[in-house]
Every structure is written in structure tokens, then in C-alpha cells.
């Protein structure tokens, strides 16, 4: 059987989600953002929520998310995405409201908004991309930067006595009563991509059902900021990031009730 016989529309098992626009993504080659964008588009398409979805895009690399996924978007001030999502969800409780934030937005300048939105139990979904560096501005140290990790502003590696310890914010949020579902995933292998998709789907369903805040942290790579090739960045993430940011569900109220 020749290739041309296989490549037919009736044999197609995977295609670009139709909600993902044809516009060229500005992300660096190999950036995890692209995979997560694709998953968000797929999940919204599968749930049939194109007309009901409102995304809040952050300041950071994902600032142009509104150019790539064909749904309604809001652009929040730096770090204030969860506050804006709170307003959107309270005014339109029947909509799916989610924020898409990086670690500079969610865990640095927006920590106050992030924690209080989760504590209030707003029925929003938060997708939090943690790549341990400020990618957009040129690879400076972030609160999530690992000890010993070299960045533009800590060229000899992060030191605990000078720069403090890396902030792992998701376990903090899991302790709050307002959160319904808190999980940490990654997108470096096909299996992890599938798991992340299931997590995003659950978070979006929680938002639609008004069940409380869902946080999906995606441990990601920033191969440009880390100065590695995309595949080496994935390996570096497995070797270094997962020790500080282990994958798995941190809180799942629905699963706990079943037991």
C-alpha cells in the first residue's frame, strides 16, 4: 500500500483542532506553549463550548494567545488575569472562564490575585505554565527558578541566601478550601500530553458546573531561556524540574468523595 492510498480524509485519525487559527505562532521552536494551546483548543472543541468560552490571556510569552485560539478573549494587566476572570465569571456564570498564565504572571506579580481567587473558590479554570524562568523578557530569574539554575540575572546560579528559595505555588493553593482540583502535569511525552488534556478537560468541566477553582500547572520548558535544544530542554526538565515540581494530582475533591 502506497502512502497516497493511506492519506485520505476517511483514514484521518489526528488533525489540527479547527479552533486553532492558521496564524503562525510566535513561540520559539519546541516551546511547550504550543502544545498547551493545542490541547485547550481540542478540549473546547470536544466539549462544544466555542460560543461559551472566555479566555483571559496574561502578560508574558502567551500574551498573544488571543491570536491563536478562535474564542472570546480578555487581555488582563500583568498578573491580574484571575481577578479579571472572577469578574467575567460572576457577570456571566453560564460561561466557561479560564485564565492562561505563565509563572511570571501567576506566581510572581500576580501571587496576591492568584491566591485570593483560589481562596474565594471562584469557578474558573487556571492553566499555569511553569518554566522556571522569565521567557519573554530574555531569561531572567523568576520566583520559580531552581536553586543553582543559571539565568541572565543570576549568572552564577540561584543562591538561597541571596535570592531565596524557589516558589512552588500549586501545593499552597491545594491547601485552600476554595480549590476543587489542583494538579501538576507536563507535556514532554505523548503520554503526558494525553494526561494534561484530561486534566484541562476536568478543569473546564468544573468551571462549567460551578464547582470551584481548578488549577492545572504544566511544568514546561523554555529552551531559549535555558539555552538548550528542545529535546535537551525536555531532558533537563525531567532531570531537574521534576524533583522540585513532581507531577500528579495534588487535590481532587471529586476523587476523595468516592473513597
Amino acid at each position: 500500500m502506497e502512502n497516497n492510498d493511506i492519506i485520505k480524509i476517511e483514514n484521518r485519525v489526528y488533525k489540527k483542532p479547527s479552533l486553532l487559527n492558521d496564524s503562525h505562532m510566535h513561540y520559539c521552536p519546541g516551546c511547550s506553549h504550543g502544545v498547551v494551546h493545542k490541547l485547550v483548543a481540542e478540549v473546547i472543541e470536544e466539549l462544544g463550548l466555542q460560543e461559551k468560552a472566555i479566555g483571559v490571556s496574561p502578560v508574558g510569552c502567551a500574551v498573544f494567545a488571543y491570536n491563536y485560539i478562535d474564542i472570546d478573549w480578555l487581555e488582563a494587566a500583568h498578573g491580574r488575569a484571575t481577578a479579571m476572570a472572577t469578574a467575567a465569571k460572576r457577570l456571566m456564570p453560564d460561561k466557561l472562564v479560564f485564565t492562561y498564565q505563565g509563572d511570571g504572571d501567576f506566581a510572581a506579580i500576580g501571587t496576591c490575585e492568584s491566591i485570593h481567587s483560589c481562596n474565594r473558590g471562584e469557578s474558573i479554570a487556571i492553566i499555569f505554565i511553569n518554566n522556571a524562568i522569565y521567557g519573554m523578557t530574555g531569561g531572567q530569574m523568576a520566583p520559580t527558578t531552581l536553586l543553582g539554575q543559571k539565568t541572565a540575572t543570576c549568572p552564577y546560579g540561584r543562591r538561597a541566601d541571596l535570592n531565596g528559595y524557589p516558589l512552588s505555588i500549586t501545593p499552597l493553593l491545594a491547601q485552600l478550601d476554595g480549590t476543587r482540583y489542583v494538579t501538576r502535569q507536563s507535556v514532554h511525552t505523548p503520554a503526558n500530553v494525553r494526561k494534561t488534556k484530561a486534566a484541562i478537560k476536568k478543569a473546564f468541566q468544573n468551571s462549567m458546573e460551578g464547582k470551584g477553582t481548578s488549577v492545572v500547572e504544566v511544568v514546561s520548558t523554555c529552551n531559549t531561556g535555558w539555552k538548550l535544544s528542545p529535546e535537551k530542554a525536555n531532558q533537563w526538565m525531567v532531570d531537574n524540574m521534576f524533583a522540585k515540581y513532581p507531577l500528579g494530582d495534588l487535590k481532587n475533591v471529586d476523587a476523595e468523595k468516592k473513597d
Binding site: N11, Y14, K15, M25, Y27, G30, G34, V35, V193
Partner: peptide, 10 residues
């Protein structure tokens, strides 16, 4: 794993 969704599979 494709970040730019440029692969279709048959």
C-alpha cells in the same frame, strides 16, 4: 507532541 500542530495522522 508537536507544538505547532502541523502534523496530521492517517
Amino acid at each position: 507532541v508537536c507544538p505547532d500542530a502541523c502534523i496530521e495522522v492517517y
